[in-house]
Design a protein around this nucleic acid. Structure first.
Lengths: 250, 250
DNA sequence: TTGCCCGCATTGACTGGACAATGGCGTCAG
DNA sequence: CTGACGCCATTGTCCAGTCAATGCGGGCAA
């Protein structure tokens, strides 16, 4: 029965009868409209909230959720910065859309999590340098980006300083003799962990993409692992590929 | 308070104290353990269900959710089939992992949805051929893959027949004179629509990746749009890239 | 031994009620 | 006119209880 209520409202949302930002009837109104108890109405609303269609703003009511994703291009991070050299890759990508970027950088030396150690082919006890970044757009948290480097190759380099690296960390790695020529990308789709919910201020019903890039040198050594947590409501992941002709084999 | 209960159980799950498949305490047990009402316990469980950590099997109880993703490689769909030619790209990719693939194909001529028409650069009223596929693995639905082709270039071709195309629809397109040399991939992360929940038998708390590929010929004409709905609990999206050196510009 | 049926534990759905928290808005005082 | 205060509509949290649905497993009959 609460499913039916949810279905009806969901229908109005997808049909456009209720536009993004529109206010839904209050619980009391729906209660009398459908002649059910308040808890039943709330269950219907809870469904829609968990589907990411509705947000609740106490005590204003429930509203149809707005959605304005930005474009995330993993490839762009490796292109030459076309414009203002004082902006890093992130700023360049998004400032064009008229929003103000900002990022908070933290640097540390840690034992890497297992999934990172595996991809960097480290032995137990090996340490890594980690650059943790939370990126903001117009003051709102946008994504979390953590880059891991084997400690022995970045020790004392610019990468250890908690400041923007204008020309990109990848260029610094190249200057150190570890130019990346190949990357393996993996993407998981899942619900966020509570810590991610807090750091990214995610409303309920917001899944995230968890993107892991491993960068390799020409010799095949992995020298960088970057993980990005991408809130689904703020991102489109986009990339371009050339296609192999079916005659050749990789 | 129900948050605290959820936190505690979540902690046990991520710490590994509760292994995948393990049975949680019953609602009654938790009710007396925490000395709260049943509704409060259920609210905590509902949180975990929507986070994708727990599934409920009535009337057996609640269980820690299992997760065994398969690897999805958009690039592989363009490689020459290395092994058994009677399997299409999908079967080849997954049969190696010892599971039995199957797919149901449907072909139709329709007016394309707006997001497809836009990518195929069609005029209003232009029709497309659509190949709708639901793919199964070991009898379980795995993903939904719909491919759209401009009707004028595939009319009367093999693509209109609702059967497996062993050598791949892309090869057929190439034989028709429309070899694709470039593709644009977009990926959205969102919660599934009710229809997708039904077709893919998605448990609550399962987000999906919505993958749209547009294939272009050397002349720059889009000749194929493929959309794939990828349940987050069954997929890892994976691809490899060569990296441009920062000296050159794309 | 085999097969059927029913009980029972467990979760799902719904009700009615109570109190708390929040933020806007109107009112009132300075 | 301005600022502070308090009302109030609305959602959040929690409780106690009732009945329904489900599937396993034990008991009973053939």
């Amino acid at each position: 029965m609460y499913q039916q209520i949810a279905d009806e409202i969901r229908g109005q949302i997808v049909a456009g009868d209720l536009e993004p930002g529109a206010k839904l009837p209050t619980e009391a109104e729906m209660r009398s409209a459908y002649d059910v108890s308040r808890e039943t109405v709330r269950k219907a609303l809870n469904l829609l909230v968990n589907e990411g269609l509705v947000v609740s703003a106490r005590p204003q009511g429930h509203f149809v959720r707005r959605r304005e994703p930005m474009i995330f291009r993993p490839q762009t991070e490796f292109r030459k910065r076309p414009h203002s050299p004082e902006m890093d890759a992130f700023a360049t990508e998004h400032s064009a859309e008229g929003r103000e970027p900002r990022q908070v950088i933290e640097v540390a030396i840690v034992e890497p999590p297992a999934e990172v150690a595996k991809r960097l082919q480290l032995k137990a006890g090996d340490l890594v340098a980690i650059r943790k970044r939370v990126r903001y757009l117009d003051g709102e948290p946008f994504n979390i980006n953590d880059s891991y480097f084997p400690l022995d190759i970045v020790r004392d380099s610019e990468i250890m300083r908690p400041e923007d690296i204008t020309r990109g960390a990848n260029e610094v790695l190249a200057e150190l003799g570890y130019r990346q020529v190949r990357a393996l990308d993996e993407l998981y789709v899942r619900m966020p962990q509570p810590e991610e919910v807090k750091r990214l201020e995610l409303p309920p019903g917001t899944p995230v993409g968890y993107h892991i890039t491993t960068g390799f040198t020409a010799e095949g050594r992995p020298v960088r692992v970057a993980t990005t947590v991408l809130p689904g409501d703020r991102h489109v992941i986009s990339y371009e590929r050339g296609l192999e002709t079916p005659g050749e084999e990789a």
